[in-house]
């Protein structure tokens, strides 16, 4: 047998320092921070859905800071045009030619704030860029920087003036998380402490780009045993056979679940992917990919995750 893949402990240690740092900025949201990082390491994009003011933007900003990534924020509004996202070609009178001015999407970490307030046109410009990791304008293709990570935030769809993301596009996001209100202790701490955004700037980058890329590569090498594949298949099969859902999980969703679980296992320092790793990311990965049938009581993504988790035996 070959020796196990050399674990680069320095990057892993740096990752844990990052988690500690982030926890100082965003209080009481350890799980969400870990999920966001797992999503980043699995090269997926993240969707945060919650009411305004719970720290969605702060999370994205602090991630950019601590990871030392170039960062752009795009505030999505109803009059946002695709060109405002990807960039625009401008005529240069000096050499009488068009020059492409890159839009805010050219950054390693892009925060698409309140993505469901923009028109579907602008949304699809973003989603296409996310999918293909490149932007096409005037028959030229511009490759986006690597790593490329989009955090989109979304207000709950029942709010007025929103264009909900189409269901078919939702699965471009590897994970969907909710932040939720802070608990009493942390809220107190938040109220009594200094401005979190100010605090943010005192944080330095704790993870180098090289380390991040190494970790991303390591995620794919986390061992997946046949027993675990059995479990993932059982989960997917369950969603397909159950009448609680309009449609089951797609093969792409199954793959996403596996990647996310690998990423989680890496962060936990597990020897391979464990069923618990799958369970930890399950809600975040499948919550937005399953549409419950209308006669069930499952209307929240968290409920869906719990329901599926409880219904499938660990082999």
């Amino acid at each position: 047998m070959n020796a196990p893949i050399q674990q680069d402990t320095s990057s892993l240690n740096a990752l844990h320092t990052t988690i500690v740092q982030l926890n100082k900025v965003i209080l009481g949201k350890d799980t969400q921070i870990r999920l966001s990082l797992a999503c980043l390491l699995a090269r997926g994009h993240l969707l945060i859905e919650d009411v305004p003011g719970v720290g969605k933007t702060t999370l994205a900003q602090s991630l950019a800071h601590t990871l030392g990534l170039s960062y752009h924020r795009i505030q999505f509004t109803s009059d946002l045009l695709p060109a405002d996202v990807i960039g625009v070609s401008i005529f240069d009178r000096n050499d009488s030619s068009f020059h492409f001015h890159k839009g805010p999407i050219f950054a390693q970490l892009v925060l698409a704030d309140e993505v469901n307030r923009a028109s579907p046109k602008a949304q699809s410009a973003l989603l296409e860029a996310m999918e293909e990791h490149q932007v096409t304008a005037d028959a030229h293709t511009y490759v986006l920087p690597a790593p490329f990570f989009v955090i989109a935030t979304q207000n709950p769809t029942y709010q007025i003036g929103t264009y909900p993301l189409p269901e078919s596009q939702l699965d471009r996001f590897l994970m969907r998380i909710e932040l939720g209100y802070p608990d009493a202790t942390h809220e107190r701490q938040l109220l009594s402490g200094q401005d979190r955004r100010e605090f943010l700037h005192t944080l330095g980058a704790t993870l180098t780009l090289q380390q991040l890329l190494t970790l991303q590569n390591q995620v794919q090498q986390v061992h997946v045993s046949p027993a675990l594949l059995d479990y993932i298949q059982a989960l997917v099969r369950y969603t397909r056979s159950s009448t609680k859902f309009v449609a089951g999980l797609s093969p792409r969703a199954a793959l996403a679940l596996l990647r996310a679980a690998q990423s989680w296992a890496l962060m936990q320092g597990h020897i391979g992917v464990l069923p618990e790793d799958v369970q930890a990311v399950l809600t975040a990965v499948i919550g937005h990919r399953l549409v419950p049938a209308n006669d069930t009581a499952l209307n929240k993504p968290t409920d869906i995750g719990h329901y599926v988790l409880k219904s499938v035996a660990v082999p």
Binding site: D230, Y238, S241, V312, P315
Partner: peptide, 10 residues
Amino acid sequence: VRVEVNNAAQ
């Protein structure tokens, strides 16, 4: 209930 191959049901 339905019991899948190599699985258990409650």
